[in-house]
Computed example of a mutant assay.
Amino acid sequence: MDKNQTLEVWMRGPVEDVPPLLQPVAHALMQVSEDLSHYTVGLQEQLLWVKPLGMASVGFHLQHIVGVIDRMFAYAANQLLSEEQFAYLANEGKPHASLTLRELIKAVAQKTAWAVNQLRTINESQLTEIRYLGRKRIPTTYIGLLFHAAEHSQRHVGQLLVTIKVVLAPNAF
């Protein structure tokens, strides 16, 4: 095994063509995709939408990661959310018998790769510019929205890992 493959993404060095100040965002997003691919191996499809102890399901976390990256990057680009984005948000966590774990993991991988590619197009001199969040237009910054996409996605990976542990060992409590 390549030594680099055993290191976390941030330890492997800079992501090509991503501005230096956005390296932590790229690293965190790439780590999300790698962690999900690794930690969901062997999870049975019938456990995808289980909500143990009222917690959010694995399926919700996977959908939400895609959605939050999409929404935060839209706000960072000074865009309002589209009807499609609002529809996606409304459906996060709703069981979809046709969606498989593999498809959801692939959707996260595609969205994180897309986001890293978007980072490559950003001019660092604009990172402190004001941007607005949501319908209430809460003021924030360009870098704040990008960072939030990454850290919020990481937070949901952690929650997903706990959910997986619980659904795999429901008698542990």
Rank of each mutant, 00 (worst) to 15 (best):
L133N: 10
R155N: 13
I105V: 14
A113K: 14
R102K: 13
Y142W: 15
L48E: 03
A28L: 14
A90I: 08
A150E: 03
Q154E: 12
A107I: 06
Q85A: 07
K51Q: 15
D70Q: 15
G158L: 06
L62T: 06
A150K: 07
Q23F: 03
P20Q: 10
I130K: 13
T163D: 04
T121Q: 14
H156L: 07
N171V: 04
Q5N: 11
A150C: 09
H96V: 14
Q44W: 01
L62M: 05
I143G: 00
M11Y: 04
E124F: 05
V116N: 10
V66S: 00
H152E: 07
L127S: 02
K165E: 12
V108S: 02
F60H: 09
V9I: 15
A90T: 08
Y88G: 01
V18R: 04
P24A: 09
P139E: 13
D2Q: 14
N78T: 09
E8F: 13
P20A: 14
S153Q: 01
V58S: 07
I130M: 11
V41L: 12
Q159W: 00
A90S: 15
V9H: 02
V32T: 14
L21D: 14
V9C: 01
V58C: 06
G158H: 07
E103N: 06
E103C: 04
F147E: 06
K136E: 15
Q118P: 02
T128L: 13
G54T: 07
P170G: 08
M30E: 10
R131V: 05
H38I: 13
P95T: 08
W49L: 09
H64A: 05
P170H: 12
S153W: 02
Q63M: 10
G134C: 09
Q118T: 05
K165F: 02
E124V: 09
L47G: 02
F86A: 12
A150F: 02
Q23G: 06
S37K: 15
